[in-house]
Computed example of a mutant assay.
Amino acid sequence: MSVRSAAERTRAALRNGVRFEVPPDLRGRSRGDLAIRAAQAVVGRYVDLVGGWDYDDAFAVHDPNADLHLVVTGRTVVAHDENVVQLRFAAPAGGVLPSWNPGAHLDIHLPSGRRRQYSLCGDPADRSGYSIAVRRIPDGGGGSIEMHGLAEGTQVVVRGPRNGFPFVPGGKALFVAGGIGITPIIAMTRAARRLGMDWQLVYTGRSRDSLPFLDEIETWERDRVVIHTDDVDGLPTAEDLLGRAPRDGAVYCCGPVPMLDTIRAHFDACGARALHFERFGPPPVVGGVPFEIELASTGTVVQVPADESALAAIRREVPEVAYSCQQGFCGTCRVRVLAGEPEHRERRLTPDEQRTEMLPCVSRCDGGRLVLDL
């Protein structure tokens, strides 16, 4: 590829909303990893060599913890079983929203007080609105049902965008999505197509009718897309999921825990070099011991088994307690610790914050009792 064509592709990617810097961490801070800093330096030098461009406020820093007051401006059913709806949010008076990269998500603060996270699945170049897609889960925690009930004109508070699942725009990539896990993956795959990357997509689900965005995806290059449904093909095997993994390339996957467990267990044998994934639901508790939580507001003592999260135990007594990601990065469930020593299993809180607070979705206690301000 010539230097001229490289410059043109770089500028085109930027115009289409694909940014070549590594996104900040989930608190909006620069990432400190040495490998990431080295990659940033190489990419920055490459951009300097192939040509410059004027400053674009799309790259201005936005505090992902700041409230954005948005309104629902669109609602579209995107799966044939009618259980997945795409919602679009925009500023009430219009205007430009903070930029985002494929893989980013929003924290939605619903009118009921519930807080939920949803991956952005629209076009990063369209900064007039954000699009997410939500599967209706009747026996879930109620968040998806409330999301499906949002009418156009409803105002919600949004935080973000945040990105704990960053896409690196280059090289070879296999994208693997399970059901609603297509939401971050579709934004990544669209970006890979625009960039002319060597990519493959494996999309799995219960049935064709349950797969969001299938009509669009089936218009893409047929030799690069595999649709695998349980009702026709059976549960996907490791070969089904990773058989197209590029040697020395990257694998990006999002979907249910069993699918991710299969991919992680067999990744080393697939030939790819990097694995990026986003899971639904909480990770399993590993190496935990039983402990107690005292709820300061009532004096109730909750027993937390070795294999259960503190949040799950608290929810048995306080079902309305706020939570979202259940993975230790959104901060929705943070609570003050009045007594006891938490075992912190997250990297969101600062050392000073960890002296008086914890995230019970992942952090716990190495035996004994914690007294929490609940």
Rank of each mutant, 00 (worst) to 15 (best):
G129H: 13
S128V: 08
I132V: 13
P161V: 06
P102I: 11
R116M: 12
I137W: 02
G122E: 10
D123M: 01
D139L: 11
P124E: 09
H105E: 08
L106R: 14
A125Q: 08
D126L: 03
P102D: 13
S128C: 02
N163R: 03
F165K: 01
H148K: 08
A125E: 13
L110F: 15
G113F: 15
F175I: 07
C121S: 14
K172F: 03
S144M: 12
D126S: 04
W100E: 10
G141W: 00
H105F: 14
R159P: 09
C121F: 02
R136D: 02
A173M: 05
G113Q: 04
P161R: 05
G142A: 06
G160S: 08
I108V: 14
F175N: 06
M147F: 08
P169C: 09
G149S: 09
L120I: 06
G140Q: 02
V168Q: 06
E152M: 11
I137M: 15
R127C: 02
A125V: 07
P98V: 14
G164K: 02
P98I: 15
P98Q: 15
G170P: 00
A104R: 12
S128A: 13
P124M: 11
P111K: 11
Y130A: 13
I145A: 14
E152S: 05
T154S: 05
G170D: 10
C121W: 04
A133D: 05
R135T: 04
S99G: 15
Q117D: 03
S128P: 00
Q117L: 07
H148D: 09
P138Q: 13
P138R: 09
L110H: 13
G142R: 07
N101A: 15
